[in-house]
Simulated scan of single mutants.
Amino acid sequence: MKIRAYIRVVHNWLWKVFSGYVEDTFMDRQRLLVLIYLMIINTLVMVLRQLGLTGMEGGYFDWGNNLYYVLCCGACVLFLLRLLSLTPTLVIVLLGCLMFNIFHMFYIALFGIGYAYPALVGSVMMMMVTLFLAILSYLKRLTLVIAALSVTAYAVCCLLTQDEHITGIFAGVVGVFVLVWLMGTRLIELLTELSKTNDEMKVTQREIFSLFRMDKAALLSVAHLAGKQDLSPQQTGKLLERIADPEDEEQVDRDLAGWYEQHRTDASLLEQVFPMLSPSQREICKLIVEGYKLREICEVLGKTESNVTCQRSNIRARLQLDKADNLREVLQARLDAYVRSHYPKS
């Protein structure tokens, strides 16, 4: 239990340090952790290799390993400079790992090293680890690329070596990669749907709290009071009615229905006008257009200022805006132009 607590503390600290670089979503949190731990492992391997404590001997292997590490560090530097977003950075690191192992396999197969069988099996295991990391990062397309390239590389090695031990496990290698890819793809789809539903529920929750002019703690207090006093649904409705202060209970229903319809319309319009933005970025755009300031956006969305600022920078980059462009004016102008072109007045 203590180990889990320590790990949780470390993860929270890492998130505070890098929260300004990524979106505040479950997937980005997971991808960030995969990238950080993968770079830590790569660095430890490089240190051990320099000390002569691990790895193969040989100029070709050292050259390939060093090139891969430089590629990873370069991608991470671009990420920290905000010249590369999180997902492309992680894709570069994972593909670099895959290509290094494929290069290693081909070299062994071509030059007939005596320990070819265990070395090739070791490379296959490393490619399987890369596939697992892609699954943990929810990179659905990348999992297919990794599985396909891994199987193809092993098939080429079988043709080059003509070794019965290597070719004898080919069917097993293909079966394992296909099975892991299929199960991983399904897992990614399910978690993606779950994450999307969770984000939608958070938005709805915040809007409902806003409608009743209450925060989460206050509304939960009302629910607790209703349960403690054993109030009926009608009595609880009356209590909420008095808090929201509408004219009557029917007004509550009309307000809720009107809010839901307006929220759905706004979300749909933003998605049509700005398909290049993520749902969380479009949510920030909606608040910007409505005139919310940075601190107010942070309060509404429950995010840090550094995270929202990072998101605004990403929005400007995806919309290809200059530094002199006013983000709110540009967003409003594009929305107005879309409405005029698609919904002309009769």
Rank of each mutant, 00 (worst) to 15 (best):
M1R: 10
M1L: 08
K2E: 15
Y6Q: 08
R8P: 01
R8Q: 12
W13R: 12
L14F: 08
F18W: 08
G20S: 08
V22F: 06
D24S: 13
T25E: 07
T25G: 04
M27F: 03
R29T: 03
L32E: 01
L32C: 02
L32F: 01
L35V: 03
Y37Q: 05
L38R: 02
I40D: 10
I40M: 10
I41K: 09
T54D: 07
M56L: 08
M56W: 06
G59L: 09
G59T: 10
G59K: 10
W63V: 01
L78K: 06
L80K: 01
L90W: 05
V93G: 00
L95W: 00
C97S: 12
M99V: 02
G112R: 09
I113V: 04
Y117P: 01
Y117C: 01
Y117D: 04
G122Q: 05
M125L: 14
M125C: 07
M127I: 07
T130A: 03
L133C: 09
L133F: 10
A134H: 04
L139Q: 06
R141P: 00
L142E: 04
L142T: 09
L144H: 06
L144E: 04
V145C: 07
V145I: 14
V145R: 02
I146E: 00
A148T: 13
L149K: 01
T152G: 11
A153Q: 09
A155W: 07
C157Q: 04
L159W: 10
Q162S: 11
D163K: 03
F170L: 13
F170E: 00
G172K: 07
V173D: 01
G175L: 11
V176H: 00
F177P: 00
F177T: 01
V178E: 03
L179H: 05
G184M: 06
E189F: 05
T192L: 02
E193P: 01
N198R: 14
E200D: 11
E200P: 02
V203D: 01
R206M: 04
I208Y: 09
F212Q: 04
D215E: 08
K216N: 11
A218F: 09
V222C: 05
A226R: 03
A226E: 05
G227V: 00
K228D: 05
K228T: 05
Q229S: 12
D230K: 15
P233H: 03
T236E: 09
G237A: 14
R242V: 14
R242C: 07
E250L: 07
Q251C: 12
V252Y: 14
V252I: 15
D253Y: 15
D255A: 12
D255V: 05
Y260N: 13
Y260L: 15
Q262K: 15
P275Y: 09
L277W: 12
S278P: 01
S280W: 03
E283S: 15
C285K: 11
E290L: 14
G291N: 13
G291T: 12
E299R: 14
G302P: 06
C310S: 15
S313L: 06
N314R: 15
I315V: 15
A317E: 13
Q320D: 13
D322L: 10
N326H: 13
R328I: 06
Q332T: 15
A333L: 07
A333W: 02
D336G: 03
Y338M: 05
Y343H: 15
P344E: 10
